[in-house]
Design a protein around this nucleic acid. Structure first.
Length: 281
DNA sequence: ATGGCCATTAGCAATGGA
């Protein structure tokens, strides 16, 4: 079972690249962020004619999340509403369309696009912290369902120094501040773990490279796109790979996809991806 | 040390992203 996340920075601009990636990798579920399109105009036919099911929760110009799968997804849920007791704060935090979840093979997959926050002294930073706090409450409610949990997406936070190309300069700033890291830690609790770090403890693995400063050419990136798994899934993880090849596409997204391969449910040996195949990505 | 690129919009200049 291959579950992937990718901030595509506009699904309409990246439509062909996403379709090509699906064709090559054939994930069981692709979770998108920053689709930047109202639900009325999501290009769902482009995927449905290839046999995919598509669920989306988007808005004009900003934000937007989606799920694309060759399988039938159950119990699709969007936003914080319905999960949490609605008050003014929840309503405010729900105006931006940033969260969608569904069940696949009994796994609850929660796809998030965490606010960027802009800079430490901005209103947007406060919104980010509040949003993360709300996500924590959402996950506490989620726990009551007792489902194996996979939360993934663009977290806009580099959790440790290893996740930054220049920790001396960047630590403490936006996406690497103490408060953001603390909020992330709090919402993950004891149960959820960063599956990428199960397989790779070294630095120099990035999921986002700034469009400016030739960051891609110089390989100066950040690891801000993550996949977190609850323990029963973590035990069955076979690999977690950043698919950096597509960051080198013409007119790329500034993010690369990240994908986890799970032995879930029971699978035969020949479904495993070979090391040769994985090293090409 | 500064700022740089890209996508979008009742739309060619301003805003948000990260």
């Amino acid at each position: 079972m291959l579950i992937a996340t990718w901030n595509v920075n506009s699904i309409r601009t990246r439509l062909n690249q996403v379709k090509e990636w699906l064709e090559e990798i054939k994930p069981d579920l692709l979770c998108l962020q920053e689709t930047k399109v109202d639900d009325l105009f999501f290009p769902k036919e482009a995927f449905e004619k290839d046999g995919y099911q598509v669920h989306f929760y988007g808005q004009k110009a900003y934000n937007g999340v989606a799920l694309i799968s060759p399988h039938h997804l159950e119990d699709v849920r969007v936003g914080f509403q319905g999960e949490l007791k609605e008050d003014e704060e929840i309503r405010n935090l729900s105006e931006q369309k940033r969260i969608i979840s569904a069940l696949i093979e009994g796994i609850r997959v929660v796809n998030v696009y965490v606010p960027n926050g802009s800079s430490l002294n901005s209103e947007k930073y406060l919104y980010k912290i509040k949003w993360l706090n709300c996500l924590k409450k959402y996950l506490i409610e989620q726990e009551k369902r007792n489902e194996p949990l996979c939360i993934l997406g663009d977290f806009n936070i580099a959790p440790t120094s290893k996740d930054l190309h220049d920790p001396d300069r960047l630590t403490g700033g936006i996406m690497a501040s103490k408060a953001e890291r603390k909020e992330l830690e709090n919402l993950l609790g004891e149960r959820l773990e960063d599956v990428f770090r199960v397989f790779e403890t070294d630095s120099n693995h990035w999921s986002w490279w700034d469009y400016r400063t030739s960051a891609w050419e110089r390989d100066k990136g950040w690891r801000i796109d993550h996949i977190y798994l609850s323990q029963e899934l973590l035990r069955n993880a076979r690999s977690c790979i950043i698919h950096k090849k597509v960051r080198g596409n013409i007119q790329p997204s500034d993010h690369a996809p990240v994908a986890v391969d799970l032995n879930w449910p029971e699978m035969e040996e020949d479904d495993f991806y070979s090391q040769d195949f994985l090293s090409e990505l």
